[in-house]
Amino acid sequence: MTPRVEFTPEQLAEVRRLQGLYPDKRAALLPVLQLAQEAFGHISLEAEEYVAGLFDLSPAHVHEVVTFYTLFFREPKGRHVISVCHNLTCHLLGAQQVLAHLTERLGVEVGGTTPDGRVTLLGVECLCACEMAPMLQVDDRYEGHLTREKVDGILEGLR
């Protein structure tokens, strides 16, 4: 079920607070889009239009912002997101094996979401934690020094 694209009164109060914080209210666009993604799961065209209305912007302006940044999801994502760094240091220390293990364990390609909606798997550019390479981000958390066993342990913790 797609949640209704509308903020609660509490969330709207937060939008107004954010808009009042900056010298120009448009600067609150990224934080408000982050709020929208938390509230609605992803940022649909409908959500872009809704947010545009809160800023008196054209939906096209919001769309160009949403599509510019990697952390905004335009399609429903899994309950958990695993982002494996595949940049240079992680590549040198085995990122490809980590990705191969994850695609096998999860049965999805990089960029895909498991059919049960549990995990979205991504390959991403440097997360700036090269000292713990190979590493990944699972939701809010960084996990490094990855081995097959460690990756399996991470997967077990995800519901």
């Binding site: 940049n87 240079l88 240091t89 700036c128 090269c130």
Partner: peptide, 10 residues
């Protein structure tokens, strides 16, 4: 911070 290979600001 985003330059590949850098993590000191973290």
């Amino acid at each position: 911070e985003g330059e590949p290979g850098t993590f000191k600001d973290r």
